[in-house]
């Protein structure tokens, strides 16, 4: 399995240098389809995205990304822990991510 990166040109360029082949440069219009295709790709084990890019996706797809185990979705950039934080609050009842 491989890592995949979906994002703007600036974001994906560095990953190309680290040897990641499945890097997809997208715009706001093409992001939705590319993310869906990557989630369906059986050869992708980890999907990396920037948190700002995720916020432009439809709510259903955002929650699909949050729930996805295979591929595992890792969000980088500011505020990426908010989903996990909410989940912890919901399950344990206390905000332990402080």
């Amino acid at each position: 399995m491989e890592l995949a990166v979906v994002g703007r040109g600036d974001f994906t360029l560095g990953f190309k240098l680290a040897g990641i082949r499945k890097t997809y440069e997208v715009t706001d219009e093409t992001m939705d389809g590319t993310v869906r295709d990557t989630l369906d790709d059986k050869d992708v084990g980890i999907l990396v995205m920037h948190n700002d890019d995720v916020s432009v996706l439809p709510a259903a797809l955002q929650s699909a990304l949050g729930e996805s185990i295979e591929p595992t979705v890792v969000l980088v950039g500011g505020g990426e822990t908010s989903q996990l934080r909410e989940k912890i609050k919901q399950a344990v009842g206390v905000d332990l991510w402080k």
Partner: peptide
């Protein structure tokens, strides 16, 4: 163009 020259792709095993 340098990125195209890279050979090894990091592989992961789940």
């Amino acid at each position: 163009s340098i990125a195209f020259a890279l050979k090894d792709v990091p592989q992961i095993k789940l």
